[in-house]
Design a binder for these strands. Structure first.
Length: 734
DNA sequence: GAGCACTGC
């Protein structure tokens, strides 16, 4: 794949093949070197070793790390890269997989003196796990304790200190920091990594960084003009609060040009990667049934190709389960010597213990076929993959701003995604990728996935920008502008929630309070209202529980047991109060085990056991508890007192009505509901406790379109409460 | 009587 036109290739002469090499390219590129593996010199469990042995091991480990660092493709261009950063305020770095850019560049810049005046180099990642693992790795390479010179900061987990100079974090967290420090004054450099993924956070961050950079360089110039030029630059910058901000955008290859254009023609450089070649094969004809084609390909590989595990990309849990069944059926029909094939499913909602199965090596003599969603595209890297099967489809979220409906639809992948998938076969050696569509179809795919900002609800984005003093949202310099309709709808929603005043500026205090809370704006508003309704304790539990993936877990084979377990929590009033009951019962269970055994690990184990017994998703509940305690902290800082409505659940339901009035529904004669805001016909989702009870009037939290429109998290209310508690909306409508 | 890819504060 050629480097984009605006790219300066660094070291192209010895570039290895990348993830999408054809045979010819592979020959031209020569033989790949085997990757160095760091030795596992862990001393912790080796107390019995003499002290000297341990020291030797540590020394060996350090030696190994040093060698590994030197061998990375990026190592040989350190000087040039540092020079480019000195000479350019904004630099785009196109780095292929395995170049070492994420771990090495911050160290190069630190050593080159970019952390003057206690300034920090910030590196953002789209995912929490990446921020943590990379920070750990770099701390080890620097031979420092994590949290000192090198640290990370993600939600619920801050491993930084005053001495931290290289800070890895999620992009969303840096956005939150910007709300408190709009000039990002602690940072001398911000590196936005994996920018090609174009998450909402990345896109908003890029727009913001562009603005901050301009503002800081203006400030810097004013200070420079007023200062005495004979002084050295160090004392100059000491006097200045804002020195200029260096910006580095790191991306995978395809779209360097659009970043460069957005940043006024910023320079882009290319760093080679280290990937083994992957042969890409296509089908001759389009496949009418991609599941069947996947199945055939799995067995074709298993029976005809050499050893190595298979990774097949499917769109969801249901597909994975059905392909798994079919594979098992066909294995049984094979001669016994060929039955050495093992299936392993992996998708996000699978409990972590089961997810781990994908990482275990197959028993000797067996081949593993991993059936995965796009969790295996970027979020997890499974070792041992030699063959990739890519039907070329993905389940993607789409959002209709007019109706406020979210839906998940199966669409073709983008070229970038297809490359990412095939690259998974070339991590440890040469591999093969079977694309289950003809080659000409590949060329018809869009270059890169539509950025998330163009297909999601923007209420939160708008609220954050308003907080940063950016009032003209429609005129804001987005890298890719969301539709005008989407922006207008979110402005309207925020106005109705009282976050914006009549002139569409952030209102005081409600708008500012809402912006401080890391929640969906509607949930923030619910908390603020709960203060008046004196049910803050209950509402805090509800918003924490609503903010996570589904709390209840329904395994197909134990449907009945799961249903009985849930019945013990369910409230006739609806799902919200049911969630409160679950939370409170789990908290009681925790309290009890705290009294009997104070050790944190055994308390967590107890909670885990309680969750299994009650068919509750432990991960989700854990997450909800984290959110609960974080928001509780914010609420206390804001001076709200934690009131409870006790047994007066009517008060609580009135508060739900006042908060979620935009999501109200009226029963129709046929038992379906009419969503009042959009006029759509919706059904209560079968997972709701109100599925059978047909209340006259309901409020809900989610409207999802699958086969039909479903509303989830539903509570029964009195229709008269709507005009009473939300006159700004229902007085005009009734 | 349904089913929901993946992230993030």
């Amino acid at each position: 794949m050629p480097a984009p036109r605006s790219c300066t290739p660094l070291l192209q002469q010895d570039r290895l093949g990348n993830g999408d090499c054809t045979n010819q390219e592979r020959l031209a590129n020569g033989v790949c070197k085997k990757r160095d593996r760091p030795a596992n010199g862990d001393c912790k469990n080796q107390d019995r070793l003499a002290n000297g042995d341990c020291k030797n091991q540590l020394l060996a480990r350090r030696q190994f790390i040093l060698q590994h660092r030197k061998s990375l493709p990026i190592a040989s261009v350190e000087k040039r890269l540092v020079e480019e950063v000195r000479n350019n305020d904004t630099l785009i770095i196109v780095g292929e997989t395995g170049s070492g850019k994420t771990t090495q560049l911050p160290q190069f810049l630190y050593n080159a003196g970019f952390c003057y005046d206690e300034k920090v180099i910030g590196i953002t990642q789209p995912r929490r796990v990446a921020a943590v693992t990379v920070a750990k790795r770099v701390a080890e390479e620097c031979n420092v304790k994590l949290g000192e010179k090198v640290g990370y900061s993600i939600r619920f987990d801050d491993m930084t200190s005053n001495s931290t100079r290289i800070k890895y974090m999620t992009d969303g967290l840096l956005l939150r920091e910007a709300l408190l420090d709009p000039f990002l004054s602690r940072y001398s450099i911000v590196i936005v990594d994996e920018a090609h993924e174009r998450t909402v956070h990345t896109d908003v961050l890029l727009g913001l960084l562009k603005k901050v950079q301009l503002a800081r360089s203006k400030q810097h110039n004013i200070i420079k003009e007023n200062a005495n030029y004979r002084e050295n630059s160090r004392s100059l910058s000491q006097g200045a609060k804002y020195t200029s901000l260096k910006l580095i955008i790191m991306s995978a290859s395809l779209d360097a040009k659009c970043f460069s254009e957005y940043f006024g023609g910023a320079k882009a450089v290319h760093v080679q990667g280290r990937q083994y070649p992957v042969d890409v094969l296509y089908t001759y004809q389009p496949e009418p049934d991609y599941l069947d084609a996947t199945l055939i390909t799995i067995f074709q590989i298993h029976l005809e190709e050499g050893s190595g595990d298979i990774l097949a990309f499917l769109t969801g849990q249901e597909e994975i389960e059905s392909v798994e069944r079919l594979v098992h059926e066909r294995i049984r029909q094979l001669p016994e010597r060929n039955q050495n094939l093992l299936t392993v499913p992996i998708y996000a909602s699978l409990p972590s213990e089961q997810q781990m199965n994908a990482f275990k090596p197959a028993p000797s003599g067996f081949r593993k076929v991993i059936l995965a969603t796009n969790i295996a595209e970027t979020s997890v890297t499974i070792p041992g993959i030699k063959y990739v099967i890519d039907p070329g489809l993905v389940k993607a979220r789409s959002y209709n701003p007019v109706t406020g409906t979210e839906s998940l639809i199966i669409i073709p992948v983008s070229k970038a995604q297809a490359l990412q998938r095939s690259g998974r076969a070339g991590r440890e050696g040469a591999g093969k990728c079977f694309r289950l569509y003809p080659e000409n179809e590949f060329h018809k795919l869009i270059d890169s996935t539509v950025p998330e900002i163009k297909r999601c609800n923007l209420a939160n984005v708008v609220l954050q920008l308003k907080t940063l003093g950016i009032d003209d949202i429609i005129g804001f310099d987005f890298m890719e502008k969301p539709s005008r309709m989407a922006i207008v709808k979110s402005l309207e929603q925020l106005f109705l929630l009282g976050a914006l005043s009549d002139d569409y500026k952030l209102s005081n205090p409600v708008g500012h309070q809402m912006a401080r809370l890391p929640l969906d704006p509607m949930y923030s508003k619910a908390l603020i209202l709960a203060v008046e309704f004196k049910c803050l304790e209950e509402m805090l539990i509800v918003v924490a529980m609503l903010s996570v993936e589904s709390i209840f877990y329904f395994p197909r084979e134990k449907m009945e047991e799961a249903r009985t377990a849930r019945k013990s929590f369910s409230s006739p009033e609806g799902d919200h109060i049911t969630l409160v009951k679950v939370y409170r019962t789990s908290a009681e269970c925790l309290e009890k085990s705290k009294i009997t055994n104070g050790k944190e690990k055994s308390i967590e184990k107890k909670l885990n056991k309680w969750c299994r017994e009650n068919y509750i998703n432990y991960r989700s509940l854990r997450h909800a508890r984290d959110i609960h305690s974080q928001i509780e902290g914010h609420i206390q800082q804001m001076g709200f007192s934690l009131s409870s409505c006790g047994d007066d659940m009517q008060q609580f339901r009135r508060c739900l009505t006042a908060s979620f009035f935009l999501n109200a529904g009226m029963k129709q004669p046929d038992g379906s509901y009419r969503a009042l805001a959009s006029g759509q016909t919706v059904q209560v989702h079968p997972s709701s406790v109100l599925f059978r009870t047909k209340a006259d009037c309901i409020i809900f939290n989610e409207l999802v379109r699958t086969n039909q429109n479903y509303v989830r998290n539903v509570t029964r209310i009195d229709p008269l409460w709507l005009p009473e508690l939300a006159p700004q909306y229902y007085a005009a409508h009734s």
